[in-house]
């Protein structure tokens, strides 16, 4: 049941996009989100679309895999399109039948909104497709660190995220093992109504919680015996370093965003 689960979408490749610094990639994504909201013509979207295609090619990701990421959101996209096409009025009447009519403004706004959603989702998933969760965690820590002086525990936050990331595969395996052990004793996790099924998970949950908290306890002990005392002055094995390509990428995106959002 819990086998063959892939966590996250990260696909490891040796590419230019992958090798960009995680901090820069997060900033770039934020700039792109802002820019996509300022664009108000299809020409602008067209330029961003070309840019998206170039980025996907540079990232060496399988294009179909990237497109497939849209599947869960397809319903929302189609719904947005239909609502606009049928309900937004104004402009030329393109087609009408009894009380239903399709007018040009509706079609225009519908496709405009859908294009925006499409580009937003593609650019943001490009970030998670090309950056591993651990690097993203480090990036978030760096970006939040100026807020430390206002009492935001940025280092603690990223430490907890890192611990969680480390524990996920271990606990998945453990959950699988406990489920099999309980099934061998006759446990049934699949039948019954919602509440019965939830209750049937208790023989899995209790050992799983005990094991998770025991592991956490051991980890805390190990950290403290190695003199862990929070983020202040902590050094790391892999320091994040900016390369000149990071700044070039950021520069290109800033220029592009400023130019295109004025279209």
């Amino acid at each position: 049941m819990l086998k063959d689960i892939t966590i996250g979408q990260y696909i490891a490749r040796d590419s230019l996009v992958h090798s960009l610094d995680a901090r820069i990639k997060i900033i770039i994504t934020a700039v792109l989100i802002a820019a996509l909201f300022m664009v108000d013509s299809f020409t602008g979207f067209g330029i961003f679309f070309l840019f998206l295609m170039v980025s996907i090619l540079l990232s060496k990701l399988p294009v179909m895999r990237v497109i497939k990421g849209l599947k869960p959101i397809l319903f929302l996209i189609l719904l947005t399109l239909f609502i606009h096409v049928f309900l937004t009025g104004g402009g030329e009447v393109l087609w009408s039948w009894k009380f239903i009519s399709i007018e040009s403004n509706g079609v225009y706004t519908g496709f405009f909104m859908v294009t925006r959603i499409f580009l937003l989702i593609m650019f943001t998933s490009l970030l998670t497709l090309t950056t591993s969760p651990l690097k993203l965690t480090d990036g978030i820590e760096y970006i939040l660190s100026p807020l430390k002086r206002f009492g935001v525990p940025a280092s603690e936050l990223s430490m907890m995220m890192t611990i969680a990331l480390r524990f996920i595969p271990t606990l998945l395996e453990e959950a699988d093992k406990i489920m099999k052990a309980q099934m061998a004793r006759g446990a049934d996790f699949e039948s019954g109504n919602l509440i019965e099924r939830a209750k049937s998970l208790v023989p899995l949950l209790v050992p799983l919680f005990i094991s998770a908290f025991r592991r956490a306890d051991e980890l805390a002990l190990a950290m403290e015996s190695r003199c862990y005392r929070g983020g202040e002055g902590r050094t790391r094995l892999h320091e994040m370093k900016y390369h000149y390509t990071d700044f070039i990428a950021l520069f290109i995106i800033l220029c592009l965003s400023v130019l295109v959002s004025n279209f």
Partner: peptide
């Protein structure tokens, strides 16, 4: 450590 494990 407990928050990390709980989130996992």
């Amino acid at each position: 450590a407990e928050i990390g494990a709980a989130v996992a």
